[in-house]
Simulated assay, not measured.
Amino acid sequence: MDNRLTENNILEQENKLYSAIKDGNITALDQLLHDDLLFILPSGETITKEIDLDTYRDGALKVDELLPEIENLNIIDDMAVITLTMKLNGKFNDVPFEANYRYIRFWKKFGDGIKVVGGSGIATV
């Protein structure tokens, strides 16, 4: 795998992440998320990779539709910072939801690939 940080490679990783989220693909998410990931949810709670994966393992989160729009993508040495808006709908703990979010995500190059090391999401109008 070519793991140089280019705009195309980051967008490719983002697309893999979207597919993994929508499909609830724990194996793909495990590969895309760094073991030391920290992410701040729209609720303000900080989660780790394992907490995120458990959300999919236990079936709490099911995403039916995911519509991202990239706003910015900056590559800084071996790291990329991306901002985007995303419309999501699905179910959380069997309760339907539809919402718009703004995310910032940090991708970093490692010997075994490009992985998400951190990020944050907020609900938008």
Results as ranks from 00 to 15, higher is better:
residue 94 D to Y: 07
residue 98 E to A: 11
residue 37 L to G: 02
residue 59 G to H: 06
residue 65 E to G: 04
residue 45 E to W: 11
residue 77 D to L: 10
residue 69 E to Y: 12
residue 74 N to C: 06
residue 68 P to F: 05
residue 57 R to K: 13
residue 104 I to K: 01
residue 66 L to H: 10
residue 76 I to K: 03
residue 97 F to C: 06
residue 87 K to D: 12
residue 44 G to A: 11
residue 80 A to F: 14
residue 87 K to R: 14
residue 91 K to G: 00
residue 97 F to H: 07
residue 102 R to P: 05
residue 65 E to N: 14
residue 95 V to S: 05
residue 73 L to H: 06
residue 77 D to E: 12
residue 62 K to F: 09
residue 88 L to I: 10
residue 38 L to P: 00
residue 51 I to V: 15
residue 81 V to A: 03
residue 62 K to S: 09
residue 73 L to W: 04
residue 80 A to Y: 13
residue 82 I to E: 12
residue 57 R to C: 02
residue 98 E to F: 06
residue 84 L to K: 14
residue 110 F to G: 01
residue 57 R to G: 00
residue 78 D to C: 02
residue 94 D to W: 06
residue 70 I to K: 08
residue 108 K to Y: 12
residue 95 V to E: 10
residue 80 A to G: 13
residue 108 K to M: 13
residue 99 A to T: 15
residue 46 T to C: 09
residue 37 L to N: 04
residue 110 F to C: 01
residue 44 G to K: 11
residue 86 M to A: 07
residue 56 Y to A: 04
residue 96 P to K: 01
residue 102 R to H: 09
residue 52 D to I: 10
residue 61 L to H: 01
residue 87 K to F: 15
residue 92 F to W: 12
residue 77 D to A: 13
residue 40 I to P: 00
residue 74 N to P: 00
residue 49 K to Y: 09
residue 53 L to P: 04
residue 83 T to E: 07
residue 92 F to R: 09
residue 107 W to I: 07
residue 104 I to W: 01
residue 59 G to K: 05
residue 81 V to D: 00
residue 100 N to Q: 10
residue 83 T to A: 03
residue 53 L to W: 10
residue 102 R to Q: 11
residue 93 N to I: 06
residue 79 M to R: 08
residue 59 G to N: 04
residue 45 E to T: 15
residue 53 L to Y: 07
residue 56 Y to K: 03
residue 81 V to Y: 09
residue 57 R to F: 02
residue 37 L to S: 03
residue 79 M to H: 08
residue 38 L to H: 12
residue 96 P to W: 02
residue 81 V to P: 00
residue 97 F to D: 06
residue 110 F to N: 01
residue 93 N to R: 11
residue 69 E to C: 08
residue 67 L to D: 12
residue 79 M to W: 02
residue 105 R to S: 06
residue 93 N to P: 00
residue 92 F to L: 13
residue 99 A to V: 15
residue 98 E to S: 14
residue 49 K to G: 02
residue 57 R to Y: 04
residue 43 S to T: 15
residue 64 D to S: 09
residue 58 D to C: 07
residue 65 E to W: 04
residue 62 K to V: 15
residue 71 E to H: 13
residue 42 P to N: 06
residue 47 I to F: 13
residue 50 E to S: 13
residue 98 E to V: 09
residue 63 V to S: 02
residue 42 P to D: 05
residue 68 P to A: 05
residue 80 A to E: 11
residue 50 E to N: 14
residue 107 W to S: 03
residue 86 M to I: 14
residue 38 L to R: 14
residue 84 L to C: 07
residue 94 D to H: 08
residue 61 L to G: 00
residue 109 K to I: 10
residue 105 R to G: 02
residue 55 T to N: 05
residue 76 I to P: 00
residue 105 R to D: 08
residue 45 E to M: 14
residue 39 F to K: 03
residue 89 N to H: 08
residue 70 I to P: 03
residue 80 A to Q: 09
residue 39 F to W: 15
residue 98 E to G: 08
residue 100 N to T: 12
residue 47 I to V: 15
residue 80 A to L: 11
residue 94 D to Q: 12
residue 69 E to T: 15
residue 74 N to Q: 12
residue 60 A to W: 01
residue 103 Y to N: 08
residue 52 D to C: 10
residue 48 T to H: 06
residue 45 E to R: 14
residue 41 L to W: 12
residue 78 D to Y: 07
residue 40 I to C: 07
residue 81 V to M: 09
residue 60 A to L: 03
residue 46 T to W: 10
residue 55 T to V: 09
residue 87 K to N: 12
residue 87 K to M: 11
residue 67 L to A: 09
residue 62 K to D: 08
residue 48 T to L: 05
